[in-house]
């Protein structure tokens, strides 16, 4: 094999605030937030589905807002408060939205669930959903191929009624 002589730009030091902890990484600029979380911080709860912002499996909260971590460069997320599925349970107690997914049987295979949960929390934080149709529209960035939508909508409805998000 020919020796690869392409010179890659150097990695740089990037500090991410994830789930309340400051984490320093040496990463290349093209590392997405999703890859930084999964491959470098080993927080594998956030899932890689399509890697193109279509499925929502990679949804995390940045400063309380839901985003697709696959379409964001980690280097651009410094100094922001990043919350992943691993950061939701507090003192051994599930986050109310996590508990609601269990109570409403709102998942089957579970692959989309971390993204769905972060997205429901983002939905409540945004405060714009007033009707069931609003919920369906504003949750359209999270695909569930098992088709658990009916119960996911129930979770979102309950979360919106409860309102309190931490």
């Amino acid at each position: 094999m020919e020796k690869n002589t392409v010179e890659l730009p150097p990695t740089s030091s990037v500090t991410l605030r994830v789930n309340g902890l400051s984490r320093q990484l040496n990463i290349a600029p093209w590392t997405t937030l999703l890859d930084a979380l999964r491959e470098h911080l080993h927080l594998s709860g956030t899932k890689k589905g399509c890697d193109h912002g279509q499925c929502g499996a990679c949804t995390v909260l940045v400063d309380g807002k839901r985003i697709n971590s696959c379409l964001s460069l980690a280097v651009m997320q410094q100094d922001k408060k990043i919350t992943t599925i691993e950061g939701l349970a507090k003192e051994g107690e599930l986050h109310p939205v996590q508990q609601a997914f269990i109570d409403h049987d709102a998942f089957q295979c579970g692959y989309c669930t971390p993204g769905q949960i972060c997205s429901v929390i983002g939905l409540v934080n945004e405060g714009k959903a007033k009707t069931m149709d609003d919920i369906r529209d504003l949750m359209s960035g999270n695909v569930c191929r098992c088709g658990a939508y009916v119960n996911i909508v129930k979770v979102a409805q309950e979360a919106l009624e409860r309102g309190e998000i931490r």
Partner: peptide
């Protein structure tokens, strides 16, 4: 257009 996640960014 798009989704909440995309419009947030």
């Amino acid at each position: 257009g798009a989704t909440a996640q995309l419009r947030n960014v």
